[in-house]
Design a binder for these strands. Structure first.
Length: 153
DNA sequence: GCCAACGTTGGC
DNA sequence: GCCAACGTTGGC
């Protein structure tokens, strides 16, 4: 099975590429996804898949770095933790509704590839992130798209 | 701060 | 099952 590529959004004021890099083992759980479509994409992720890390709601909105999937989808325990902001009364230990994955830091791009720049590239026009009104926090990226972005970086 | 786009909820 | 109301996301 060939490696797949994904784009995941994060608000840098909450968790940025720099925060990621600073983690002692450079691995973090990607919890808190509460959208079924995004969850289903997460369930398709396989170990070794590469992830574009996108800064949303930022001064410098765009792709900021790359990560790699190290642990495939498993139940998001925050969903049954009443004290968590991600608590969902519809999710239980017996019947978890939400999943999370673990990802490892790969690299921080020298410069953020800005959204305005991505929009100018014709061959990236089908990227879900560029679609007006797109709010999915996890979206698939094609190999071609990933390669183009890698070359820009 | 504004607002368009979208997902979810809940009354019927 | 429909759909209006509401809340959230996220670019600008």
């Amino acid at each position: 099975m060939a490696r797949k590529y994904w784009l995941i959004k994060t608000e840098p004021s909450v968790f940025s590429i720099d925060d990621f890099k600073k983690l002692p083992n450079e691995i973090t759980a990607w919890e808190g996804v509460r959208n079924y479509q995004a969850r289903n994409f997460m369930r398709e992720m396989k170990k070794g898949d590469l992830l574009l890390i996108y800064h949303s709601n930022a001064d410098n909105t765009g792709i900021a770095g790359i990560g790699e999937l190290v642990k495939e989808a498993y139940p998001d325990h925050f969903s049954w933790d009443k004290k968590s902001q991600y608590f969902d009364p519809g999710s239980t230990i017996e019947k978890p509704r939400w999943d999370m994955v673990d990802i490892k830091f790969v690299k921080k791009l020298k410069r953020v590839i800005e959204l305005s720049h991505l929009k100018e590239i014709v061959s990236l026009k089908d990227m879900l992130i560029l679609r007006k009104g797109n709010r999915l926090s996890v979206t698939p990226v094609s190999e071609v798209e990933f390669d183009i972005i890698s070359k820009l970086a």
